[in-house]
């Protein structure tokens, strides 16, 4: 016969099992990332509009945000304070992505002109450039710079093309197994990490264009638009439709996902780019919420 004591012991064990199960489930979703600060323009009626990219000037410890909707660039210091707003004398036409070079100039993708324009800061001069590759017009989408070369993602082909500063093509990064090409790429540890949205894979190339490794993301991702590689080698993939970030280890094994849809702090609307800063921050450009949020461990 069951005594009152046995009943309570059994009940306690049952509750313990249930609580343990719940916490195991939560552990899968746990993220070490906490909201730290935001880069945005607070002035009424002058907020950013559809920011699309972030560039980090490591030497000067500055963040540059590309404000595609208002045709301008905004610079912030490491604390997230707005320093400057720059529209190149209203010469920019849908800026989309940018890099700074050691010559104190800015290379900026202008979608409205289909141009990789060069802004000479000292001369205050904007020079538009139409890119081609083997006679075909290039539609620049994303840009990175490394070892004196400009790496441009061509939206028309999904290929990445490296150019000299004179805009002469040097190399092309593509793969036969990814006919839809790439939607984003980053350069990390002398390798190019490219995101193949259609096949939900990350392709890793060496700088001579040789495909070294492929990571299959499978059903863990829906509509990936951007990626970033952490110092540990973990890969972070931004999902624009799911409004979250999926994290994979060095072998491409899915580890966890975090963030969610919304307008509040730490929530995403139409995120467009993800990038690590050199100070341990995970930076997220959110077009829909018109801001860049920075998360820290």
């Amino acid at each position: 016969m069951m005594t009152k004591r046995t009943f309570w012991i059994l009940q306690t064990v049952l509750v313990f099992i249930l609580v343990l199960g719940y916490h195991n489930e939560r552990a899968e979703a746990a993220s070490p990332w906490l909201w730290d600060r935001v880069l945005k323009q607070d002035m009424v009626k002058d907020a950013m509009q559809m920011p699309t990219a972030l560039y980090i000037d490591v030497d000067k410890e500055l963040y540059y945000v590309v404000d595609s909707g208002r045709n301008r660039l905004l610079s912030f210091n490491r604390k997230g304070e707005l320093l400057n707003i720059f529209n190149a004398g209203k010469a920019l036409n849908i800026p989309f992505d940018m890099v700074k070079t050691e010559e104190a100039g800015i290379w900026i993708i202008e979608k409205g002109n289909n141009s990789l324009s060069y802004i000479a800061l000292k001369e205050k001069k904007v020079t538009p450039n139409t890119l081609t590759y083997k006679g075909e017009l290039v539609y620049p989408e994303r840009i990175e710079t490394h070892a004196g070369l400009l790496y441009v993602l061509n939206k028309a082909t999904g290929n990445i093309i490296s150019y000299s500063k004179k805009l002469e093509p040097v190399n092309r990064f593509s793969c036969s197994a990814c006919p839809w090409g790439f939607v984003d790429f980053k350069i990390y540890q002398e390798k190019i990490w490219a995101l193949d949205q259609a096949n939900r894979t990350i392709r890793c190339f060496n700088l001579t264009g040789e495909l070294i490794k492929t990571f299959e993301l499978g059903d863990t991702i829906n509509f990936p638009v951007s990626l970033a590689i952490e110092g540990t080698g973990f890969m972070y993939v931004l999902d624009r439709q799911s409004r979250d970030i999926a994290v994979y280890d060095r072998n491409g094994t899915f580890k966890y996902r975090f963030l969610e849809q919304g307008i509040a702090r730490g929530q995403l609307s139409f995120p467009s780019e993800i990038r690590f800063d050199p100070w341990g921050g995970l930076c997220l450009v959110d077009e829909g919420n018109a801001r860049v949020e920075i998360f820290k461990r």
Binding site: M50, T52, S68, G69, I94, F96, K111, G112, N113, N114, E136, L137, Y139, K155, A156, T157, G158, N159, S174, C178, P179, W180, G181
Partner: peptide, 30 residues
């Protein structure tokens, strides 16, 4: 190529020069 199409369809070419477009296809014609 896409350029061949856009020779006639000029307006479409202008529509493509936007923040977001449907230009996408490797080695082909979007």
């Amino acid at each position: 190529s896409m350029a061949t199409c856009l020779k006639c369809h000029e307006n479409t070419g202008k529509e493509l020069l936007a923040n977001h477009s449907h230009i996408t296809l490797q080695e082909g014609n979007s």
